[in-house]
Structures are given as C-alpha cells and as structure tokens.
C-alpha cells in the first residue's frame, strides 16, 4: 500500500473539518475524493501534504509514518501536490517553475554556485532536462521562456501539473485540477491525468466535476461534513443512496 490514511481528524478551533477519515491508496491507482462544498476535501489534502498538521490519526507512506513531518520533508519522500487556486511561481519563467519542481533532487549550494563546481554544472544540466521533460509531458514546452503569470489559464493549470511531475514523485495530489476550465479543456486535462497514471504515477484527486471523476477514477472516497460516508468503484458510488442523499441534500440547501 503506497499511502495509508488512518483515523485522520483535523479541528480548527471548534470546527471539525476532517473527522476520523481512513482509506488506502494502492500504487498505480487513481483515487478520487469527492463531496459537496465544505466537505473537507482540500483540508484532507493539506493534511496528507503536511500543509496543516493533523489533530489525530496517522498517515503512512511506503510503510513509514509521515504524520508529523514538515511539508518539504513529505515532498521529499515522494508526494507532490497542486493547489486548488492554481499556484505558480508567477513572476518566473515557465522553465524555472518546472526547474523548482526538480530542485530538491539537486544538492547545489552557494559555494557550488560561486565556484561553478562540476556538481553545479552537472545538476544545472540535469534539472534543465528534467524541467523540459516535465513541460513536454504537460504539453507546454513551447511556452518555456514565457513568464508563468502571463500564460493562459489552461496552460497555467498544466504548468502546475508539470511542477509536480518534475519532482518525480510517487504520489501526486491534484486539488481540483479542472476548476474554472471549459468543458472542452476538461477532456484534455482528463487525458493528461490518464497519461500520468499510464506513466506509473499514483494519483489522488479532489474534484467537483462528476463526469471527470467517474471516467477517471479507479475508486472513489466520498466525504460529507468531514466524514467518509462511502468508498468504492465509480459504479458503486453512483448507486449509493447515502451519496445521492448527500449531494441532493447539498443541492437543495445551496
């Protein structure tokens, strides 16, 4: 099992955002986490990636506990993530963005940089290649020299994925990868995510658009008010009365 989530709880003051959630993500899987607004999906990602510490419960990655590790350490173990509102190094070039994704694999320090040591030069080439590879993977290599903040929205979403891919992770957490994207582009993004899975990345995604999730996911976890109310294959989930109730209830209250 690549990732094990066990009884994870997160409280903010009096509010319980994630309540005793457990599930597994096997290697090579695409796992979707769905649920109405405010169900705690993004918070769950923040817990797995170490952005927020969990109040209770354990997270195990490749058999080692990662619950209390700082965010960058979790990333170094092989968990990459994107953010819900597309998060980039928006004043840097597209290429430099992807390079930062690979950065943790390069050990170059200030002295290497000043003395232009063989290590600095080697890692410079390596990270450049890794960055280009990630950009090609995401289909935005032609934009390499543009400033990230100036490229179209859809390309920015691809760049966010490229940064994650450049980190050469084992698990990628995608937080609403197609939020604010047209339906046509959604199809293309679905292909990109499928492509990632085919390349051997394990994927965990939070998503609102049911069509995307149903077509992509191997299995689905449904959250409602922070609690897991169902887990299963897309077919099982779409027939689950509790899920339908949660979504319909949310829809009528909205």
């Amino acid at each position: 099992m690549l990732l094990q989530v066990r009884n994870v709880t997160k409280r903010f003051g009096g509010l319980t955002a994630v309540d005793d959630v457990s599930f597994d993500v096997p290697a090579g899987h695409i796992k979707a986490i769905i649920g109405p607004n405010g169900a705690g999906k993004s918070t769950l990602f923040h817990l797995i990636s170490g952005y927020h510490p969990a109040t209770r419960g354990t997270l195990t990655f490749e058999g080692a506990e990662i619950t209390h590790l700082p965010m960058h350490e979790i990333a170094r173990r092989g968990i990459a993530r994107t953010f819900q509102t597309t998060s980039l190094f928006s004043h840097q070039t597209v290429l430099d963005n992807a390079t930062m994704g690979y950065r943790m694999h390069a050990a170059t320090n200030v002295f290497d940089a000043l003395l232009r040591t063989p290590r600095a030069r080697r890692e410079e080439t390596e990270s450049r290649e890794a960055a280009y590879e990630a950009l090609r993977f995401a289909g935005i290599a032609p934009l390499a020299n543009r400033i990230a903040g100036s490229i179209p929205q859809e390309a920015q979403k691809r760049l966010a994925i490229a940064i994650a891919v450049a980190a050469k992770p084992k698990l990628v957490l995608l937080d609403e990868p197609v939020a604010g994207v047209t339906s046509e582009e959604t199809v293309e993004h679905a292909e990109l995510i499928r492509h990632m899975a085919n390349e051997g990345y394990t994927i965990c995604l939070v998503e609102h658009k049911m069509t995307l999730v149903m077509g992509l996911a191997d299995s689905i976890v449904v959250l409602h008010h922070g609690k897991k109310i169902a887990e299963g294959t897309p077919a099982e989930i779409s027939a689950d009365p509790a899920v339908i109730e949660a979504y319909l209830g949310a829809a009528t209250h909205a």
Binding site: S49, Y51, H72, F89, Q92
Partner: peptide, 11 residues
Amino acid sequence: DNEDLARAAGI
C-alpha cells in the same frame, strides 16, 4: 514568489 508551492516542491 510562492512560499507554499516551494515547500510543496520539497524545498
């Protein structure tokens, strides 16, 4: 530019 993203990238 983006501290959170840098952390997420293992920096």
